[in-house]
Structures are given as structure tokens and as C-alpha cells.
Write a protein that binds this DNA or RNA. Sequence first.
DNA 1: GGGTCTTATGCCTTTGAGTTATGAAAATCG
DNA 2: CGATTTTCATAACTCAAAGGCATAAGACCC
Lengths: 316, 316
Amino acid sequence: MKIESEHLEILAVIVEKGGLTDGADALGKSQPSVSRSMNLLESRIGMPLFEPGRRPLRPTQLGQSLARLGARIRTANQEASLLVRQFRQGRAGLLRVGGSPIFMDGVVSTMIADFQSRSQDIQIQQSYGYLDELTGKLRNAALDLAILPVQPGQMPQGMDFMPLMSGNNVIACRAGHPLTHHRAITLGDIDAFPWISPPMDSPLFRDLERALKSIGHEEMRVTFSGGSLASIQSVLTGSDSLTVLPYSVVFMSRRTVPLEALPLKIDHASRQLGVLTSKDRPLPPATQHFISFLVTEFQRLQSRMDHENQVTMRRG
Amino acid sequence: MKIESEHLEILAVIVEKGGLTDGADALGKSQPSVSRSMNLLESRIGMPLFEPGRRPLRPTQLGQSLARLGARIRTANQEASLLVRQFRQGRAGLLRVGGSPIFMDGVVSTMIADFQSRSQDIQIQQSYGYLDELTGKLRNAALDLAILPVQPGQMPQGMDFMPLMSGNNVIACRAGHPLTHHRAITLGDIDAFPWISPPMDSPLFRDLERALKSIGHEEMRVTFSGGSLASIQSVLTGSDSLTVLPYSVVFMSRRTVPLEALPLKIDHASRQLGVLTSKDRPLPPATQHFISFLVTEFQRLQSRMDHENQVTMRRG
DNA sequence: GGGTCTTATGCCTTTGAGTTATGAAAATCG
DNA sequence: CGATTTTCATAACTCAAAGGCATAAGACCC
């Protein structure tokens, strides 16, 4: 004997409101409608739900007990409606973000923190990876979006890419590093200092190699490698080492860590930092919401970086 | 936008079973039926519940979340079915029992304990009172049944009475009381001892008065009054006081308290201990269940009492 | 006992749950 | 890769019941 949940919900409202008429009002239905529903329920369970011949309809013991269960069903149902509404606005759900480690740690994570504090019903799962791996995860829906630098020629099939800012790399060192006092930096100057190397499978590592080649530097003395951003920052500030980092990472890191970028143009593939998503899967609202948040955040970041550069230029 | 709870329940089963076909099986419905229900739900909430183009139907994030709520609704619904079943059998619900204090404490409460341990989903509310008060409460449905002694002429209108055993009163004293050594007890013997008086508004009190009159005892020396059974037992066993109690109460009390009944016939109105219920209100199943339990328990008690009396007779 | 408030019923329309039969698409397997 | 199996969607239909309005019937309150 299956009881209809709708009936239990109606019962709960009637008991709560203390009468059939008021209950019908609260439910937005007509009084005869709910009366019939209760008759039907009573005949189904074969026992009276209300004391017979009482005019402000009073529930029996069974009616009371069932009404409590109906109330539970009702709240679950209302939670469902709320969930759908929030989900539709991208204010609830699961957000699986992947990205290249240094950039995620250095720039995106603080933005995620902002986003998180505004949309607390969104659960965020972050992971790290590079282009191929992230593309694969996007394809089989293990990831909702990826944030990483992509070169124009590298764009994988069946993916959408939304650029956020240009991915300029710079040579970074600690604030007050000997090289920061030089007007113009020469090959010989750099030669004197050891290098921190990003993971060897990362684009940054290839950039570092290429950058050094571009300034005529064939061999480098690597004294630290394999660490994530936090380690790199520590080693960088605690020594006279040099490394290659996206400028945006240096810019953001300076809030808390004394770093500087050397005024030295380095050559690397032109690439855009941006958001990669799967073309054939529609984006969940939470993902859309997050992407539009990222766009405005990166615009703000870009303008702050531009402003600072102008100031530096004028001073320099 | 109201979501139908039934739909959420169906969704929960589909997600749990990992597919529409298996879900339909588990629900005992046809596959097209649940398919259409899910289509309807999807169109109502305006968002996909399942990943498109996946053959073992896989839920989206929203689908997962809603399925969790659906599962909650489902368990509540199942609890409701269970509750109705138990209620129908009188194994769940509320049981409001009223009765005369001494008899409830001395005899019925141990039976209630037995009953309680078998039917733990029945909530029992016990209260005390005498005929008029209990009848009133039965009339306005504040009580499901009352257990008390009723005289033939006293039967109130509109009530059903189910006799359980005859309500013989005896004079009780502690075991080893001086009077227990007498073969035949005379008025003069009794005169020497003080009395414990039941509450003055109780039938027992009137019985006591009448009993004393019947043995020619006009005045009694009351040294304790107003206590409930536990107090009476304590005072009785700790002194040489006498009192009037239903024989069944003395019989039951002897399990834990050293009491005896004096072999002295006392005169009082013939009355039956039994169950009083309202005639116009149908008895809830739990009440019916309890009454039939009481009937068999009292039969057992009666036969134990008869047996003991025979033994005593033979010995005495 | 009349008036009021509350619930039940009769009669109607419409929604949607349920069925079987069948078609389409994805997954699986050789 | 193609064939087969599995899984889901659709079509066409029936029927239960939700829901509405109008109205009767029954408590409740002076």
C-alpha cells in the first residue's frame, strides 16, 4: 500500500493550520480539492485521520503522526525548489576547476576565495594539470573548466577558449636582489646567479630554457626544482636565485612576498591565459557564473597591472 | 514552481539503481512511465537532470542533489507506510490510560511495563483519577481508556465496561504483624492498631469506613493518610498499622514488599475492576490491543490468585 | 433556533500516470 | 568495424484523480 507523498504534505499543512479551509488556503488550492484528497488518503489507509464530527477538523493520533512525516516531506520538497532556483542562477552546485599549478596558486586561488565567500553553496574541487591532461578531463566530463595558458596553435579540437589576459613571463627575483640595482642587465650579470627551475614537464620550464637561450645563456645552474609556488617563493626570497614566472603571478605575490620582476624582456611563445571548456557539453550555471566572475576579476587585475606599469615607467 | 515529491522519489530510485530501466523495475512501474515522469520533471525545472546522450542514464550535478532529497522523501514515505501498518495492528500510537491510583500503581503498572516492552512504538500516557473525573475525560476524548472499580449501579451513560476481575478489598498489614498469629480476629484485637487511610475522596476510603462499621468499629485512629501506594507500602511494612487495599494489590505487592492480608471478611459494595471506554468513539487499535492484553493478563493474575488461595486454605 | 463557519458532495474539465507497441540511439562484443 | 544487445524515448490510448464551481450538510456560537 503506497501512500502518496502529496497527500501527506497536504495533511501536514491542514494540521499545521488547524483546519481544512485554512490549509487549503495555505496550499493555494480550493477547499473541496483538499477535502477530496484527504478522503482519498483516509480510504487508502483504511483508518480515520480526523476525529469524526468535529468542525475545526482535528487530527487523530494517526493523523498527527502522519502529519509530522508529511512536514518532513514538505521541507525536503521546499529545499529541492530552493536548490533548483539557486542552481539555475549558478549559486549552487559543484565546480570542478583545473589549471596549471603556478598560475592557479599565484593568481586564481585568491579569486576562488572571493568567489567562494560570495557563493557558499557552490562546492569547488580544484586540481592541477597541463594542457593535455586537462583537455582529457574536460572531454570525459571529469572537469567543468580549466584555467591555463594556451598558445594560438595549440588549441585542442572541440574546446572553447575564453582569453583572460596575455601570458607574459618574466624573470623574477627577491626584492633588493643585486640585479635590481642595475640599469641595464647583461648576460654576464645573470650568469652569476643560480636558477630555480619549475617542474620539467611544465610550459614554464620550456619557457625558461627558451628565455635563457634567447639571451644567449646556454647552461644554467639549477639549485632548486620541483616545488610548487609556495616553495618557489620561499627559496626565491631567501636566496639570490632567479626564476621564470608569469608576470601576473609576480604581481599578485608581491602583496605578501617581497619579489620583483627584472626589467628584461624575455622571448617566449605568445600565449593567452584563459578558460578552456568543452564545446559539446553545455556549461552548468555555476560554471558560467564562475567564468563571468573570472572575466571581471581579470579585467580588474589587468588594469591594476597596467596602472602599476605606467607608474614604474614614469619613475624608471 | 512546485516540484512533485513523487518525481523526486522516482529520481532517487533511478539514480540509486543506476539507470532508468532498473529504476522502473524497482518502482514496479513500466519503463516508459518513469521516462515520461522524468521528462516532465526536467521540463518543469527547466534544467537537465541527466547527462545527454549517455545510455546508462547518468545524473547531472543537479540531478544528484535532487536525488538525495528524493531519497529523504522516500524514507519518510516508507516510514509513513510502516506507521500505518503498525497503527492498524495496534502496535504504534498513543495510549492514554487513566485509573484509580492504588490499583494502577499496584497492579496495572507492572502489566503496562510488560506491554511497553513488547510494543515499544506505543507511547503511554498514564494519569490518575476516580470515576467521575475519568468518565469526563473519556467523554471529551482526553483519555482512551480508564481502569477502575465500578459498582453495578454506578455505570455511567454512554460508556462500555469490560470487567477484568472482582474488586475484593482486604485489610492489609505487614508480614509478621501480631494479628497474623491470631486464629480468629476479634474487634478488640484490631482496636489496638492505628490505621493508614487512603485519600479521603477515594472509594477505598469509603470502603474503609464501611468495613470498620461492618465489624462494629466506629472510630479509627488514623496515623497516616494521603499517600500513594509506595508510601502506604513503606509505612505499612515499617509499622504495625493496618489499611484497606484491593486483594490484588496486596497479592502483587508481596512480590517485593512483605505484606499480608488479614483473614477477615470485610463487607463492601460488590464491584468489578475493569476497563471503561467511551461508547460513541471507536477505539484506536492500540487501545484495543492493550485491552485484549489486559484481559489475558488479568486472567493469568486471577488464576494465580485462586491457586494461592487454595494452597492457603489447605494449609490453614 | 437562527446565523455563521466549516466541511462534504455533485458535476464538470483537464492533467498526468500508466499501459503496450515500437523506434532510435548508445554500449558491448566478436 | 559491424552486429547484437541494452537502454531510453515516443506514439496512441485508457483511466484515475486533481482541481474548479456551486451547493448541500453539518458543527458551532450566541
